[in-house]
């Protein structure tokens, strides 16, 4: 459960093609990262998986189900949660209302994640549960976006640059919470610019450039490979 296979996807925005044959796999309970400079196609890869930006070629399989081209809400219902880069909190809804609308009702058994459990993971959210989403700080927004994703009891959590714009202390905290989620068996697909954050969490790293994966390896291998880091990551 929670296995994602991305096979040779090509994706365009109107006339400009952004992805040129991206393939990778996320196995259950693993954290796989997409890294690379600005504009290489990390977000587009994630949007393609959710069919928010439909790929023109290639296929995406999640737990033996071909999800290529099916409606976004159906993909989400299969157990994929998306935590977007821009956070996309509903500004007029309060914190708990943002969580409430993301709640999914499991057909069998009880939900693993509910409001109380996400408040355990992010205690700060509990104190501001009645505050409108539009007035939260960057760190609070990020916590809420992840918490909102968890409310759907996902098997795969897709995190787009979760550490962006957060204070170092908050980033550290966030890293521990993501590690906890991973320990619980959740698969994670992570896009990041913050290399140390990636290296601390990932089981496998893919470096993207110009819409393709140019290098794949373990964090240990990548940490030692200064040449690759130089070529694809330093700005």
């Amino acid at each position: 459960m929670g296995n994602l296979e991305v096979n040779d996807i090509h994706t365009s925005y109107d006339l400009s093609q952004v992805l040129f044959g991206v393939s990778f796999t996320v196995h259950q309970g693993k954290c796989v990262s997409l890294i690379g400079r600005n504009g290489v196609g990390k977000t587009t890869t994630m949007r393609s998986i959710l069919n928010l930006t439909p790929p023109s070629q290639g296929s995406i399989v999640f737990d033996q189900t071909d999800i290529t081209g099916i409606a976004t809400h159906k993909i989400a219902k299969l157990g994929i949660a998306f935590v977007p880069e821009e956070r996309q909190i509903f500004p007029e809804l309060s914190v708990w209302e943002n969580l409430d609308i993301a709640r999914k009702f499991p057909l069998v058994g009880s939900a693993t994640w509910n409001e109380d459990r996400v408040y355990e993971l992010f205690p700060d959210l509990k104190d501001i549960r009645n505050r409108p989403g539009g007035v939260l700080s960057g760190g609070q927004q990020q916590m809420l976006t992840i918490a909102r994703g968890l409310m759907g009891n996902p098997k795969l959590l897709i995190l787009d640059e979760p550490s962006e714009g957060l204070a170092p202390k908050v980033v550290e905290n966030l890293r521990e919470q993501i590690r906890e989620l991973k320990k619980s068996g959740m698969s994670i697909l992570l896009a990041e610019q913050n290399l140390s954050f990636v290296l601390a969490l990932s089981d496998e790293c893919h470096i993207m450039e110009k819409g393709q994966i140019k290098y794949s390896g373990t964090p240990t291998a990548l940490r030692e490979n200064k040449k690759i880091q130089e070529e694809y990551l330093t700005v």
Binding site: L50, L52, A71, T72, H73, A76, K77, A81, F82, P84, Q88, F90, P91, E92, L93, E97, D100, I101, A102, R103, K104, R148, G152
Partner: peptide
């Protein structure tokens, strides 16, 4: 109501709402 809140959310961000599993 939860449906009402979903309706309100639909006025704000359709894509995000569908990514949360709601049939917009």
């Amino acid at each position: 109501t939860r449906w009402g809140r979903i309706t309100k959310a639909a006025t704000q961000d359709r894509d995000m709402l569908s990514a949360l599993g709601i049939n917009v």
